[in-house]
């Protein structure tokens, strides 16, 4: 970077006021140039932050306090949308359904960890299994949802045919309010299994072998080694997966919209984001939909903060 050369360093004796002034001026000029460059490089993320976070957030908060159909002008209505939301039974129903879907998170993590432990061993076809478990992750969610819709068909669906082989008469999955949510959970677990397994596999393989060797010398059983070494060592991955799965799970929409486009029997599958989308684009209630979306965002934020707190309390290091 070319800068103006500073004046020759003055000696104590020859330092005059003019020299000092000239030096300060040169410094200011040099710093001005540097500051300009610094500002230029900082501008990109700041512009991005303002354009994609601050402005949309501020706009959303304002929109949530308006009566707005997404087409015309907005009318400020204060907290009316939030009052309506509290009194709206379908909001609570959709919120409950969304929370219910979270049951799939611990189930998925448990299966993923078990698979990761199995795949970390030297078994035949290990690479094949790793690939097979990962295929659903890279498959289109829309395509997968359609396939599962067929698989869940009460009459000729693959799921019930498989259950029939072991003498179980399967339910009419997507048409039965009792089974529609579990059906979607099973699909979501299946879809996300490969990703979680991959992360767990990396974490399991990163556990120092010396810890297992020391535990073996002390006579620790396999279960003890899992609970005292493996589980704590993969905790950061568990934490990461729980946080991202809760955020992702709270936004569940596509599979519901495809598999149960009217919200399922007795509205048993309608998630909050599905309800938000319907209110915004079908019922032209953009202001109300924004209020619901903000409440969902705040709930997810609170849950995430709690998770961070819990994680910090359980944090440990190997010294």
């Amino acid at each position: 970077m070319a800068t103006t050369a500073p004046p020759a360093a003055p000696t104590t004796t020859s330092w005059s006021k003019e020299d000092a002034k000239a030096a300060r001026k040169a410094n200011r000029k040099r710093h001005r140039n540097e500051n300009a460059w610094a500002a230029a490089f900082m501008a990109a993320p700041v512009i991005g932050w303002v354009a994609f976070l601050l402005f949309p957030m501020g706009f959303s908060i304002y929109a949530s306090m308006t009566n707005w159909n997404g087409l015309g002008n907005m009318t400020f209505v204060g907290f009316d949308n939030y009052v309506r939301l509290v009194q709206d039974p379908y909001f609570w129903k959709a919120l409950w359904n969304t929370v219910f879907y979270m049951i799939g998170i611990p189930i998925g993590l448990a299966i993923s960890l078990a698979l990761a432990l199995a795949l970390s061993r030297k078994i035949r076809g290990r690479t094949f299994f790793r690939t097979v478990y990962y295929i659903p992750v890279i498959s289109s969610l829309a395509a997968v949802a359609i396939l599962w819709q067929w698989a869940y068909n009460g009459d000729f669906g693959l799921v019930n045919q498989a259950l029939a082989l072991v003498g179980i008469e399967g339910p009419n999955w997507l048409m039965d309010p009792t089974w529609s949510k579990p059906a979607l959970i099973i699909m979501a677990v299946w879809k996300g299994l490969g990703y979680s397994t991959l992360l767990y596999l990396a974490a399991v393989q990163a556990v120092p072998r010396s810890l297992y060797e020391a535990a073996a010398l002390d006579g620790a059983s396999g279960w003890k080694r899992f609970t005292k070494i493996t589980w704590p060592m993969v905790q950061p991955v568990t934490f990461f997966l729980v946080v991202t799965n809760i955020i992702g799970g709270s936004m569940i929409f596509t599979e519901i919209n495809i598999m149960t486009p009217t919200g399922g029997p007795s509205w048993s599958t309608a998630s909050l984001v599905w309800y938000v989308w319907n209110q915004a684009f079908r019922n032209l209630q953009m202001g109300y939909a924004t209020a619901m979306a903000l409440v969902l965002g705040i709930l997810v934020l609170i849950v995430t903060i709690i998770q961070f707190r819990i994680n910090r309390a359980n944090d440990f290091s190997i010294d």
Partner: peptide, 17 residues
């Protein structure tokens, strides 16, 4: 140089956006 820096910032910002 200020102008150059501002231009650079604009380009980087535009690319980011």
């Amino acid at each position: 140089r200020m102008k150059t820096a501002a231009f650079a910032a604009t380009v980087v910002g535009a690319l980011t956006l």
